[in-house]
Nucleic acid binder design. Structure first.
Length: 320
DNA sequence: TAGCGAATTAACGTTACATCA
DNA sequence: TCTGATGTAACGTTAATTCGC
């Protein structure tokens, strides 16, 4: 017996991977939930030069800031954008108190007026008595690198995004798992991060989502395998039963009701209607074969609400 | 050339456990 | 013996890097 296990279409099979192919569902959702960013701040033009820099290239970091167009995030020039906050009520976008809360959450990378730096760690800024938003932690890092560049300090510092930043990115990710250059730069400005950081976050987030989905698929395949093994055993037993009955003496048929002869069964293997020559089979088992557990298997589970519409997977660059 | 996926590195946080006063 | 503080190894998470396509 040969059983074929199909998990649906696989639009872009991963090369060299043994993991199940991921098939996004709910395609088209993004068509309606596309986060629209209407900003007039700066341009989306941005080179990826910073992707080539190393932690030991502070001067490029500084240059990076200029190229990003948001070189300095000083308190005297806060970025006021009307980007919708997916995790907050609509009023949060209208400059209300909620909007202030939303924005305050992204000022985690702050320095107290007395000069106590927080090194980009997550902290509750609302409890701080007085603070001013300053350069984002990566910028501090660049500054520190500048200081340490001559001392051979090559250890890279890891920024820890604040809860609010992560939450906002999560919300944005739920809207669209990929970014256009404009979305990237807008998000970066909104969250007080570098565009490169936003890009990296989305890359990592996609990888995590895929990993989770792979785990879900793995569990699903295990269950499929178990159920198919059970089905296989059941069919083997049925075959053995049939063989045993075929060798049974002919008068055996006499004990069976006549109705058994007219009842059609469905072959569980091929799906064809079968009129049993040996009605004993029909009598000893339901007229209609019980629903195979296999048939109920293929409602494939999906991890989370993350979906990628094939059309949206590669969004055209806004600058191209 | 930009953008992405995959693999990898490394920083950081958490937890369990051992040790000691 | 119990308890709280301390140190640390192991492990998980995730930002960041690198490379190839």
């Amino acid at each position: 017996m040969e059983l074929e296990l199909s998990l649906g279409d696989s639009p872009a099979p991963a090369k060299g991977t043994s993991t199940p192919v991921l098939t996004p569902t709910c395609a088209g959702k993004e068509d309606h939930d596309e986060l629209v960013l209407e900003l007039g701040v700066g341009t989306a033009k941005r080179t990826e030069q910073d992707s080539q820099k190393t932690p030991t290239q502070p001067e490029e970091d500084a240059q990076d800031q200029e190229e990003d167009g948001e070189a300095c995030f000083h308190s005297e020039s806060p970025v006021e954008l009307s980007l919708g906050c997916p995790l907050l009520p609509a009023s949060a976008e209208t400059g209300s108190a909620n909007s202030e809360e939303c924005r305050r959450g992204f000022e985690a990378n702050t320095v107290l007026v007395d000069g106590d730096t927080v090194q980009g760690r997550s902290l509750s800024t609302s409890s701080l008595p007085m603070e001013v938003p300053v350069r984002q932690a990566a910028d501090q890092e660049a500054a520190e690198d500048e200081e340490n560049s001559g001392v051979g300090g090559g250890a890279r510092k890891k920024l820890r995004l604040s809860k609010e930043q992560s939450a906002f990115l999560e919300g944005s990710f739920k809207e669209h798992s990929t970014l256009t250059p404009k979305q990237k730069s807008d998000l970066a400005k909104r969250l007080n991060l570098r565009p490169r950081q936003v890009e990296v976050w989305f890359q990592n987030r996609r990888a995590r989502t895929k990993l989770k989905q792979t785990e879900v698929d793995c569990e699903y395949l295990k269950r499929c395998c178990e159920t198919l093994a059970q089905e296989n055993r059941r069919l083997h037993r049925e075959v053995a039963e049939l063989r045993a009955l075929r060798t049974a003496p002919y008068p055996f048929y006499g004990h069976l009701p006549a109705a058994g002869f007219s009842t059609a069964r469905v072959c569980p293997s091929c799906g064809d209607k079968v009129t049993p020559r040996n009605p004993a089979i029909t009598a000893s088992s339901p007229a209609v074969a019980p629903p195979s557990p296999v048939s109920t298997l293929f409602a494939r589970p999906h991890f989370g609400a993350f979906t990628v519409h094939p059309v949206l997977r590669r969004q055209p660059s806004a600058t191209s």
